[in-house]
């Protein structure tokens, strides 16, 4: 029982981390109808900026405090993500208004390759460290109930809390602010939004900025866990089944999807894996998402699209 609970909790926390990346996909899709293949590259780019700036800041300023270095690095990395968002809007999206979804998708694929290359070109392709003081040692709870207790990974727990806070803030932003409503209007229909005076270009910059900041938070958390290196870009692949399952237009869907995928893949690997040779968690996540799609093609919380014939 204790082991089942441990796996379940581990899965839930891993799921929250996937959600963090999945939210980036959802944000951009909600606001522009674009499935942003560059989300993983944005996570890598942001994490590289954070890691390298926190390394360089003490040398530039002569202040060796890690808190100072991390704070300045966070601000600088945030500014870089803003510049990236602005450039993407200026150089790519502005020229693709009202184009087919597939065209925009291919454009984000190109952006992904560019960001990966430019990021590694500017910041290097070695393994870099983000040390924001996340605890690495485990804690054991309920030791008097279960022998050996239940293991909780403190780092994952804190990361899950941060992810939850971010999700709460984004939900409020989308539901309660004028900009949030404008973002949703743009997502619904570019032309209609423009006709009522919503500035499409500004909205796109804003949403790519928000997605950039989300990528920065995800990059810091994943970078602190795994080290900052190219593999961070592949983390986005882990978030794909989450958005398929949760629905591309729903922030709460990304969270619930993340939790289901996280728990599903961990339980499958631990309890089913030994019977089929193990190493199944990645494809199992996709299979789980596909099974859900058979019953709800729009995902758990996605909007059902009804077209008038």
């Amino acid at each position: 029982m204790a082991f089942f609970l441990e796996t379940l909790i581990g899965g839930l926390m891993a799921g929250m981390l996937y959600s963090l990346v999945a939210i980036g996909f959802v944000l951009i899709f909600k606001a522009s109808g674009v499935f942003n293949f560059a989300q993983g590259a944005m996570v890598l780019f942001a994490a590289l900026a954070m890691a390298r700036f926190s390394e360089w800041v003490p040398g530039w300023t002569g202040v060796s405090s890690p808190l100072f270095a991390n704070s300045v690095a966070f601000v600088l990395a945030g500014i870089m993500m803003f510049v990236v968002a602005w450039l993407i809007e200026r150089l790519v999206l502005r020229h693709l208004v009202n184009q087919e979804g597939a065209t925009l998708l291919m454009a984000t694929l190109g952006i992904a390759y560019l960001l990966e290359g430019i990021g590694q070109g500017i910041f290097g392709n070695d393994i870099y460290k983000i040390d924001v003081g996340m605890p690495k040692e485990p804690v054991f709870v309920l030791q008097n109930v279960f022998e050996g207790g239940i293991l909780i990974n403190k780092e994952d727990f804190i990361a899950a809390l941060i992810a939850a806070l971010l999700v709460g803030a984004l939900t409020l932003f989308f539901q309660k602010t004028a900009t949030g409503r404008a973002l949703r209007a743009v997502a619904d229909d570019h032309q209609a939004a423009q006709s009522i005076g919503i500035p499409l270009n500004r909205i796109w910059v804003i949403v790519w900025c928000v997605a950039g900041v989300t990528a920065l938070v995800a990059g810091i958390i994943w970078g602190s866990k795994l080290g900052v290196q190219f593999s961070l870009a592949t983390v986005a692949m882990r978030a794909l089944p989450v958005v398929i399952l949760g629905g591309l237009t729903s922030v709460p869907g990304a969270i619930v999807g993340g939790l289901i995928i996280g728990v599903g893949e961990k339980l499958s690997e631990v309890f089913l894996g030994p019977y089929v040779g193990g190493g199944i968690e990645i494809w199992f996540a996709y299979m789980l998402a596909l099974v859900f799609l058979m019953f709800r093609p729009q995902g758990l919380f996605g909007e059902k699209i009804i077209d008038r014939v």
Binding site: F3, E6, T7, G10, G11, A14, L151, N153, L226, S231, T234, V235, R238, E265, K266, E269, V270, G273, G277, G278, G279, E281, I282
Partner: peptide, 21 residues
């Protein structure tokens, strides 16, 4: 005990929970 890890190996929580068990 054989515990495979899928490429590139960034997700190993389930593997190490099995090791703990």
């Amino acid at each position: 005990q054989l515990l495979p890890v899928a490429h590139p190996g960034v997700e190993q929580k389930a593997t190490w929970l099995q090791i703990r068990q």
